[in-house]
């Protein structure tokens, strides 16, 4: 029994390590783009894709308006633009049920801890869309009151420029984010994203 070589193990959580008996066995390490390769990679990649497809097409944004951009965000979900065509219309008012935070507007230093708390309350996986110039870099208001870019407090996945961006631009941002979600690694650890802290 002990002499028979072990068959290569497949399945989630099991790693088939290269051994003297099986020098050809491959370790299923994720490639730099997050996909699995190797013996178990085939199965994982299929699941990964399916989950990614499902996640990308059922984004639930957090209903969280800050300033002017929030009006365009509402316009995006209302008549004429109708973001539900792209599967991102279920605005949730509770961060516990949302997976996309659209930072729509300028973030003041008074608001920053609240925003960070909302982000922390959202379950993984979660994404952040920085909508408009103010959220991305504080826009025309480079001053004491605003956080100079929301990426200092939460990790941002996609920036949409404009002041405010047209609803089409936000929809475009969401479509690009969907592509990103779909091709991202769905299981295991995502790329390390260390958020910066707010400095007054």
């Amino acid at each position: 029994m002990g002499m028979t070589p072990q068959p290569p193990l497949t399945g989630p959580g099991m790693a088939a390590r290269p051994s003297p008996d099986q020098p050809d066995a491959l370790e299923p390490v994720p490639a730099p783009d997050g996909r699995f390769t190797g013996a178990m990679g085939v199965g994982m990649a299929t699941v990964d894709r399916a989950v990614g497809w499902a996640r990308a097409n059922s984004i639930w944004p957090l209903l969280f308006g800050l300033a002017c951009c929030a009006i365009e965000m509402m316009a995006m979900s209302a008549a004429k633009f109708d973001v539900s065509r792209f599967g991102a219309e279920v605005f949730r008012t509770s961060p516990r049920q949302a997976d996309l935070m659209i930072v729509a507007g300028r973030v003041s230093k008074k608001m920053a801890p609240v925003l960070r708390m909302l982000y922390d309350q959202m379950p993984e996986p979660k994404w952040v869309l920085s909508m408009g110039a103010c959220a991305s870099c504080s826009g025309v208001y480079n001053n004491y009151a605003l956080v100079q870019g929301v990426d200092r407090i939460v990790p941002v996945d996609i920036y949409v420029p404009g002041c405010p961006p047209r609803p089409e631009m936000v929809i475009d941002g969401i479509i690009k984010l969907q592509a990103k979600i779909e091709h991202d690694r769905q299981f295991g650890k995502r790329a390390e994203r260390v958020p910066a802290t707010v400095t007054a």
Binding site: C137, N142, N143, Y144, A145, Q148
Partner: peptide
């Protein structure tokens, strides 16, 4: 005397 607090871009 309170600075505007601009950060250089």
């Amino acid at each position: 005397d309170f600075p505007l607090g601009e950060e250089p871009v």
